[in-house]
């Protein structure tokens, strides 16, 4: 009786601690953003959201995040495939390098891209002579987004590739299917949930990128100013309500994406 009572109290305390942690770290800050964005009423909220500079920043962010995500899906799938399926010298080193973007502060990422591609660098000077704009233009933002989101698709695809039953592939080959046909009809469908969930996380992360982008984007309003830097500018200009209004657009998008990721992963688990 006493043991059961104790375990019930433990269970209650444990669940309460988790709920409290969740509320303090996630629910309260998000609620604060929503409250702040409507703090001056609906009209100022709408004015902030419909500001052409805000819209341009959000649309630019969406466009570049989509480009970075598509590149990530292609490169991530290829790298994940090679690292799981092939044995070659340097494989472990490459595999450990994949996680580098998670370990580096994003400001360092921005600095690395600036040193590598900026004015004064070999690539920067060559691109300048060829009339190609990289740093302080959209390509640099895409490169930064690609760098910080690089591990997502790879790390989502790798476990799925390891789980694929070799007998399915062998059966396809035995039945006369070509390598390409086996890949697209047997292997790719198994990898697809991983590619999609990795891509969604990468897209969500690219939308929120600030540290790397602020150093290399040039931050020209209406041209290279992304949403996260716009929000920072609004805070600096003492307009927290305007910053919160644009923030909830990004927040709502991120929520929708996370919901889709959970749905995709849920389907994968139920299979």
């Amino acid at each position: 009786m006493n043991v059961r009572l104790n375990s019930r109290w433990w269970s209650f305390g444990f669940r309460s601690a988790i709920m409290l942690y969740f509320v303090i770290l996630i629910v309260l800050p998000i609620t604060g953003i929503y409250v702040q964005s409507f703090s001056l009423g609906l009209r100022p909220f709408w004015d902030s959201v419909s500001n052409p500079l805000a819209w341009k920043a959000v649309l630019l962010t969406l466009k570049l995040a989509v480009i970075a995500t598509i590149l990530n899906m292609a490169l991530g799938t290829m790298v994940g495939w090679v690292l799981v399926r092939y044995r070659f010298p340097g494989r472990r080193l490459l595999n450990s390098l994949v996680d580098l973007p998670f370990a580096l502060p994003t400001a360092v990422t921005g600095l690395m891209i600036l040193l590598l591609l900026g004015p004064g660098s070999f690539v920067g000077e060559w691109a300048g002579k060829a009339g190609i704009d990289i740093v302080f233009h959209e390509p640099a933002i895409v490169i930064a987004m690609l760098f910080v989101t690089f591990p997502f698709v790879i790390r989502a695809v790798q476990p799925l590739l390891e789980e694929i039953d070799a007998s399915e592939e062998e059966a396809a080959y035995t039945l006369g299917a070509s390598k390409a046909r086996t890949f697209f009809r047997v292997i790719f469908p198994s990898m697809l949930p991983g590619i999609l969930s990795g891509a969604m996380l990468a897209f969500s992360r690219a939308l929120a990128e600030f540290g790397a982008v602020v150093l290399i984007a040039g931050n020209i309003p209406g041209k290279t100013l992304v949403a996260s830097v716009y929000i920072f500018g609004e805070i600096e200009s003492d307009n927290p309500q305007g910053a919160a209004a644009v923030s909830i657009i990004l927040l709502t998008l991120s929520f929708a994406i996370l919901w889709i990721v959970n749905y995709v992963q849920g389907r994968r688990t139920n299979r």
Binding site: V79, Y86, L94, V98, P101, T109, L115, S121, F150
Partner: peptide, 19 residues
């Protein structure tokens, strides 16, 4: 495929780090 993987990881991750 292995060469492409090397190229992607070296160009995107290793070269900036060395730089």
């Amino acid at each position: 495929w292995i060469a492409l993987t090397y190229a992607v990881i070296v160009l995107l991750l290793a070269v900036p780090l060395v730089k």
